[in-house]
Design a protein around this nucleic acid. Sequence first.
RNA 1: GUCUCGGUAGCUCAGCUGGUUAGAGCGGCGGAUUCAUAGCCCGCAGGUCGCGUGUUCAAGUCACGCUCGAGACACCA
Length: 511
Amino acid sequence: MSFVITTPLYYVNDKPHLGSIYTTLICDSIARYKRLTGEEVIFITGVDEHGLKIQRTASNKNVDPQTHCDEISNIFIQNWKDWDISHNKFVRTSSKNHEFIVNEFYKRVRNSDDIYMGLQKGWYCVGCEEFKDNPDNSPTHKCPIHQKILEWKNEENLFFRLSKYQSQIENLISDPTFIQPKERRNEIINFVSKGLKDFSISRTNVSWGIPVPDIKNHTFYVWFDALLGYVSAISQDMNNPSLEDSINNGWPADIHLIGKDILRFHAVYWPAMLLSAGMKLPKKVFGHGFLTREGQKMGKSLGNVLDPNLLLSKYGKEAVRWYLLKDISLGNDGDFQNKRFVDIINNDLANTIGNLLNRTSSMSRKWFDNKVPDIEGVSNDTKLALCTKKTVENYIIHFNNYELDLAANDVLNLAINTNLYLNEKQPWLLIKDKNKISSVGNIIYNVLESTRIIGLLLLPLLPDLSTKIDIQLGKSYEKEKSWSKQLNWGLLKNKSILPAPSPIIEKLEYE
RNA sequence: GUCUCGGUAGCUCAGCUGGUUAGAGCGGCGGAUUCAUAGCCCGCAGGUCGCGUGUUCAAGUCACGCUCGAGACACCA
């Protein structure tokens, strides 16, 4: 059994924005966590490359769509490399085997008698080449962009019988674990209760797309193309990829992590399509919130878009990860505030965790010959050992619930408690009395041990920082051994050598 | 217009099925200490818990009304 997690397949109309980074970082962290707990993980990400918008963007640039897609896709790939994303699959919907999977899937759905030719009717803007949502709001029936009068148009499209799956979908979403967070779930329940209508799955005016077999001039519409990327990803590097291969090698997804804007497509359309194709349903769809900046929506028109690459080069990925994962609770909207960002990184990472490591290591080095103290035996029932144990338990519960912010806070609290323990015990006073050296040794060992576990717990959240901590504790982490087992108290080896400490993260300054 | 969610200390938010002096983190102010990255630790912050009415022995916690904010109400993703 593998654990399958997906980001959305990002639309290649433009390079990645902070929102894409956010979603992807969360998935990355969850994927890392699951791997550490011993699960075989398939972490899927990729790009959605078809559609009219891409076609148009490319033609504006005077290149063919494939060239444009290659260019943007490469930027995504490079970005994920820069952010050290640990994905296993990167799907491109313009790839051949994706097309193959879409065709196979289509056949299944057609065999279920869920496809028919119908008429897409609506107000159409020639300028946009699109049907418009609510022209009734405007008495003149004008396109808000082009200010042209809309035409009533009938277009022949293939339709999918979504209506047939009304009760099955109702049943599915009544399970409180399927859609999260619950506020979003209510919206979907409300939407579904009004009755599902069939939706169109092909377009006649879009050449940049996957052709519908046997039907001239029709290409598949986005949802009958992009969503299948999650499936085609699984078998993408097999010799003869097929739908069956994907089904047998991982499908269904354990969690689709997406922005709240595309929840309906993932929680309603997609499951219905899968039911029609006789495939298993994803276990969970999680619609996270959006990011704002200093309390304002980010947008091109406001000119306040935060460039993720700028953040990365200025602050480093660990700082950005910590802010996004720890300070924003998944499901809520999050606000990016520069002052808060700086405060949090300095307080949490530099002062609380970084300085803990530093002060602990230097005491041990100073009083115990640059080594971990040689103590008589490890005691599991000290206050700190118990606190650590409790922290590990909570952390695991939180991570399993995808409450990454709480898990991060668990780690932080352990660091705070460890600092507190030091201040209570005051080994720097005890050491003045030579008879108390063994008692000091025990204290220092406990603190080092707690710090070791803090480092381990940070591994899925902040992989680089975690590694730095491990190095400064003399490299006690053993990759080939179970991570979970190494979270047990008392595994730090006596007398192992401690290198000279240095800051694990640089302090940030206000802009 | 209909529906959903939210409005708690300067900021970000916890407060479950109603019950002692309403909590945390950050910022701010003061103190103690020296192992450490001017750090860690301790103390202080007196917030009409959006507004009003009601239910109750008792409401931030329930009901109704109002107000402000965010969102959903199908093919832009």
